[in-house]
Design a protein around this nucleic acid. Structure first.
Lengths: 214, 214, 214, 214
DNA sequence: AATGAATGAGAGTTCATTCAT
DNA sequence: CATGAATGAACTCTCATTCAT
């Protein structure tokens, strides 16, 4: 490993350290509750150094969003790559994986979702990264749609608009987790999120109506 | 036009004018993107006047939350009060009403939900209004649960945990609207929110699986 | 009593009520800690009414100074008007009266003295009232000087510069009370103010040196 | 000239410059009459810089009090350390030193004493520095008491309560200076403060009564 | 005479960003 | 590359004073 490489690596490490500090702070204090100085102090670098690695406050926030999304996409892609699973099982696994992600990486979750304070700047300036993020999310949905299509083809699911169902399915998951974020479901509603998701799958798969019309 | 508000009614009107200005700004610029001075300028009053009507910035935000929730509760309560509706129709109506509310009062929706920036102060100080809001939301869910229970009793729905289903149902709606908020569904996903909700009801009611196991 | 008189009297009463409220607040919260609204609220009148009776905040502060000084002058004048007292006894009585005044009317004392926040405006604009106050204080000292002179003439005191001694004497009293204001002497120094004043008189009258030089 | 203060010394200098500006302003305009912006402007720094060196307005005021008291304690301690002085001479020197301090450092004097506006905040929050200041003042009095005790032991003074006398003595000095602060003695009373203090010492040492009783 | 809603300048403080070293 | 002192606009909130009613 030559000097250049070592230096490059060291740079990456510093960048990561700053990101790590920012993640924790954004998660705990929110975007507006986090000052650059808090990040640099936690990361053990100077204020100026921050701007050497990130152009501004918004940028690091977006970087975090990006990273968090990568982890999620990875997780879900992996889960449905196992052979021998029915489409139904795959959808179930996707829900489980999302739930797991929410549990294990809530910091990222909060930063990805609009739950936390949305910097206005983020909405207004549709920058490079914003588009990257939107793209990744879109692709993820397309992967899920693949599962739905497969289920219809192999006769597991009824015939339906796969794109609509996919989005609905995803919205359902998001909505439940959102519920949890808002209330901490177990305390307020009295049901744990895990149970709620299982119920949702039950409902999504088999419906709640006894007799179909006609 | 903007003379001294000497009567109680005139005072209420001015209070409302300030609230209106705040609503629009909070909606467009978010909590942190909105300065008191922007509100007062829009409302056509002076800085000091703001503090004559609201004790501080958070307070007016909460007032807005409260007002918005009241409208929603009203809307949903009304919709299920019509006689001669099946439970299924009622659930359907609830979804429609929520969707309508989102369309007609998106400003309120953004302020109620955690979508917009959550002022840290709002979380920390669990004030009177915060509790009122939580309560109203809880009661709304209880009303919906009533519909679900009714549906089971009269044989429309299968037997199930009503509280779980209610929350799942609500989460589904929330999740879809959230999706829309994030992406503006029609542009990104290519499906209008209305269609998506219809699909969701279809799914929730009848499921997507062809043959139930066993 | 005709209508005019009743009205006039009523006006005086309102003026007094405002003054009373101001006194208590200035004493407890200081000049800058007291807002006009606090005064009017306590007095049970409206904000506007305040400005009907006093031209501004400073003015009422000065009125209070004036009133307080009148009481003090009265007290001291009375005390030395009794016949058959030696000059020494008179000086002693003056000290006692001042101490008593401080105890009974600390609100006024704090407002008269420079102890409390001195509004800058008070220093800068040498207004009517300021001059009145200075005058009264000067006259009071002149009265005391009369006692000193008398004491020299009747052979009680040694021959000395009466004006210097008078001011010194007054400064001594002021200084001790100041000490008390600052520390609450009993708690910090461990001696009550009354004892301290007695000691001061002892010292002022007889000195602390054993053998006069020469 | 006002470049970045990179060395520790340069930082100390800037801190001092801000302090100096504050001292002059607090002295001339009082605590409430002095705005942070006035201080920074005078010191030639920006608003933000102020808060780099002092946490808030009160803090710099206390820092000034502390510094001023240090100078006084130093002055008085030095003055009585000379060998070969009688206790009487020492007391006389203490008075002279205090007078000198008042003349040379009136800014500090006004800030230490309660003469200037007492920020309410200062009273309420009994912070670290407040206690340090109280302590220093107490210790100063104890030093003076040492002189009085010595005087009694070596037969210069009559036997008396040394702590009472010390406080009385100090109160006398304070009272006279206070008189001067209030009136500018030379103009109003017609006697310079210096003469007044000399007279006070004369009185304190030898008394004003011709014949002691008994 | 009395009211009290309205004003708006000004206060103390924060913080993203810059740039000389 | 790294630093961290410096900036100054922007923020929320206060309050003496005015004046239409």
């Amino acid at each position: 490993m030559n000097l250049r490489a070592r230096t490059l690596e060291a740079k990456q490490q510093k960048r990561q350290k700053i990101l790590e500090a920012a993640k924790e702070l954004f998660f705990n204090k929110g975007y507006y509750g986090t000052a650059i100085e808090m990040i640099t102090e936690k990361a053990g670098v100077s204020t100026g150094t921050f701007y050497l690695y990130y152009t501004n406050k918004i940028e690091i926030y977006k970087a975090l969003q990006n990273e968090g999304l990568d982890i999620l996409v990875d997780k879900i892609t992996k889960v449905i790559s196992w052979p021998g699973m029915s489409s139904l099982a795959k959808l179930s696994e996707i829900a489980r994986a999302y739930f797991e992600y929410y549990n294990e990486h809530r910091e990222y979750f909060d930063i990805i979702s609009i739950l936390s304070a949305i910097p206005d700047e983020l909405k207004e300036t549709q920058t490079e990264i914003s588009r990257v993020i939107d793209n990744k999310a879109y692709n993820l949905l397309k992967v899920i749609e693949g599962v739905v299509k497969e289920g219809i083809e192999n006769g597991e699911f009824i015939s339906m608009d796969t794109w609509k169902v996919t989005n609905t399915f995803w919205g359902l998951m998001d909505g439940l987790i959102l519920l949890d974020e808002r209330n901490n479901t177990r305390n307020v509603i009295g049901i744990g999120l895990e149970d709620l998701i299982k119920q949702a799958l039950e409902m999504a798969f088999y419906g709640i109506v006894k007799q179909r019309p006609g």
